[in-house]
């Protein structure tokens, strides 16, 4: 078994003048849960399609489970695409069995496995239902099960949480953790940071087709400057002069930097960026000294969400407006 289940080496995909994926390198260690993050349109799906050999890269090479092409190991890969769909007229069990059979399981095993999985994830009563009769959440569960029924070594999930209610999102997380516990490698894309933060060992963050971060969650958080957040209606200009303070940035209520939005209301939330080994206490002291009345003072670690906004916020914004 190779140390990395998946390697991308300087992969580029161009459609005419448009570069969807630009010089992307990536290494996914065997047995890890790898989050593939990025705003909409950043090239996640294109990258995944290239990994699966559905698309051919314009440049660069991809190694999947030690082989240069996913086709050589397609029976050992499971894939859940971003846009979910099933054959409407097929029964839940038979669609799972069909996809499992396409992955090399013999018919009988495929059928048994389909019923086992449906039972384990609470869909036993719907095994004989046509998929068109299932709710959207159930359909998605069926599709997830169909993509993992053959017990693949590498599982690629494109936006597995989208369209699921909170309960089923937890079920989905459970499915992912179950698989990781069985030493499978999981690469999943999402733009919901909470999921990634909870279950990922490592993340890669891409924007406009380029990699902007690759590493563990802790490393990601360290990528942000140390900072505290305060809420006050008073003037915060005095804080800028503190030696430990690098910058003071106004935030909207949603946590976005003010200069990136067109907000006109008076700013009440501030992010105070600190030098690397500074202590938030200094800021608090300065607030007292300067009579800044605090409604809130927050020195907690940044969330992955903050990292995401910090790293790709402007790009994502631009993409959304475009």
């Amino acid at each position: 078994m190779t140390a990395s289940a998946l390697t991308l080496d300087r992969v580029t995909k161009r459609y005419g003048d448009f570069t969807a994926v630009d010089d992307l390198s990536l290494e996914v260690p065997t047995g890890s849960i790898y989050g593939f993050l990025g705003p909409n349109g950043s090239g996640k799906t294109t990258s995944i399609r290239m990994i699966l050999e559905i698309l051919k890269p314009t440049k660069g090479s991809i190694t999947v489970l030690g082989k240069p092409s996913a086709l050589d190991v397609r029976d050992r890969i499971g894939y859940l695409p971003e846009e979910k769909g099933l054959y409407k007229k097929m029964k839940a069990w038979s669609i799972i069995a069909y996809f499992a059979a396409l992955k090399g399981l013999d018919k009988k095993t495929a059928k048994t496995r389909a019923f086992e999985l449906l039972e384990r994830y609470g869909l036993k009563g719907f095994a004989e239902s046509r998929t068109e009769a299932l709710s959207k959440g159930m359909q998605q569960k069926v599709q997830v099960l169909a993509s993992i029924a053959h017990e693949p070594e590498l599982v690629i999930l494109d936006e597995p949480f989208s369209g699921l209610d909170p309960v089923n999102q937890e079920v989905m997380e459970e499915v992912i953790r179950d698989m990781a516990a069985a030493n499978r490698t999981i690469l999943f894309s999402t733009h919901v940071m909470q999921h990634a933060e909870r279950i990922c060992d490592r993340i890669v963050l891409i924007s406009k087709g380029r990699r902007v971060f690759d590493g563990t969650i802790a490393e990601a958080k360290r990528a942000l400057p140390r900072r505290v957040r305060i809420e006050t209606e008073d003037d915060v200009a005095a804080l800028r002069d503190l030696p430990v303070v690098k910058d003071v940035i106004g935030l909207t209520v949603d946590g976005m930097p003010v200069e990136m939005t067109a907000a006109t209301e008076p700013v009440t939330h501030w992010e105070v960026d600190l030098t690397d080994d500074a202590d938030g206490q200094a800021v608090l002291e300065a607030c007292f000294k300067n009579g800044i009345k605090l409604a809130q003072f927050d020195q907690s670690d940044p969330s992955l969400h903050d990292v995401f906004v910090h790293l790709v916020g402007p790009d994502a914004k631009e993409a959304a407006v475009r």
């Binding site: 695409p81 099933l86 054959y87």
Partner: peptide
Amino acid sequence: IEEKSNRIIEVLLSSVT
């Protein structure tokens, strides 16, 4: 068209050429 509009095609293409 069913396979295409339901996006089943992607799953299929990850299993077969």
